[in-house]
């Protein structure tokens, strides 16, 4: 448990010291919200959620890429793969929750009439999905540029795809969009249930994906035999 918490803490410290990144993390959802503010409220809230998702995914991607060289030696220092990826995920979720707070308050200050419980749930879903999503891309693509371009593609698809179409459910942030519809448009409870279920399943699948990649990359190699000190 101590190892897990230590990795989470160090992830948090690293991200908090990247002031430029933090500023952009806050700026991105704000821009997304403001740019749609004069139009339909639902669109600006959905854009805000997507902005939070993209910001946390990007932070996760950068944190994962930066740790690529460090993790093998931490493995030798006594960490198991799950300490490393779960610790990092925990740290990223914490950062995501912290940056979500001002974006939960933003529509409130702006006087938007919506279900705030729904907004909280949608933000939670965005953050929950975004951390393992960015980590998985970072684990699969070793270079930040490639990862960022892939993230950009996914978010653009998410933005442009018809949410009612069956393909939309395959996009990672569909859950927060569905919950946002319940939050803004006062639709039936089905939107909330479907969104929560989708968020939970996608988070679980992505976390399993991260675990699988990390376990392969940081596995004990067969050629190496460890004997106790004789």
């Amino acid at each position: 448990m101590n190892r897990l918490v230590t990795v989470a803490e160090m992830t948090l410290r690293e991200l908090l010291r990247r002031r430029g990144v933090l500023l952009l993390l806050l700026l991105m959802p704000l821009t997304f919200y403001l740019i749609r503010r004069d139009a339909y409220l639902g669109q600006s809230v959905r854009s805000l959620l997507l902005g939070v998702g993209w910001a946390v995914s990007t932070a996760a991607l950068f944190a994962t890429t930066a740790a690529r060289e460090l993790e093998p030696r931490l493995r030798l220092a006594g960490y198991r793969p799950h300490h490393l990826y779960l610790g990092r995920m925990l740290g990223l979720w914490t950062v995501g929750l912290v940056i979500s707070v001002p974006f939960f308050l933003l529509p409130m200050i702006d006087g938007a009439d919506l279900r705030y419980g729904g907004l909280a749930a949608a933000l939670l879903c965005s953050v929950a999905v975004a951390a393992p999503f960015g980590m998985l891309i970072g684990a699969l693509l070793p270079r930040e540029l490639e990862g960022t371009l892939l993230l950009l593609t996914v978010v653009t698809v998410q933005m442009l795809i018809d949410p009612a179409g069956s393909g939309a459910k395959l996009t990672p942030f569909w859950s927060s969009r569905e919950i946002a519809t319940w939050t803004v448009d006062n639709t039936d409870q089905g939107y909330l249930s479907r969104g929560l279920l989708h968020g939970f399943v996608v988070t679980a699948l992505l976390a399993v994906g991260v675990a699988a990649v990390a376990s392969v990359r940081l596995r004990r190699r067969r050629h190496l035999r460890h004997l106790p000190v004789g």
Binding site: L76, L224, R225, V229
Partner: peptide, 11 residues
Amino acid sequence: GEVTVSGRLGY
């Protein structure tokens, strides 16, 4: 080939 290590490794 194979490697046998006795004890803790540092790298």
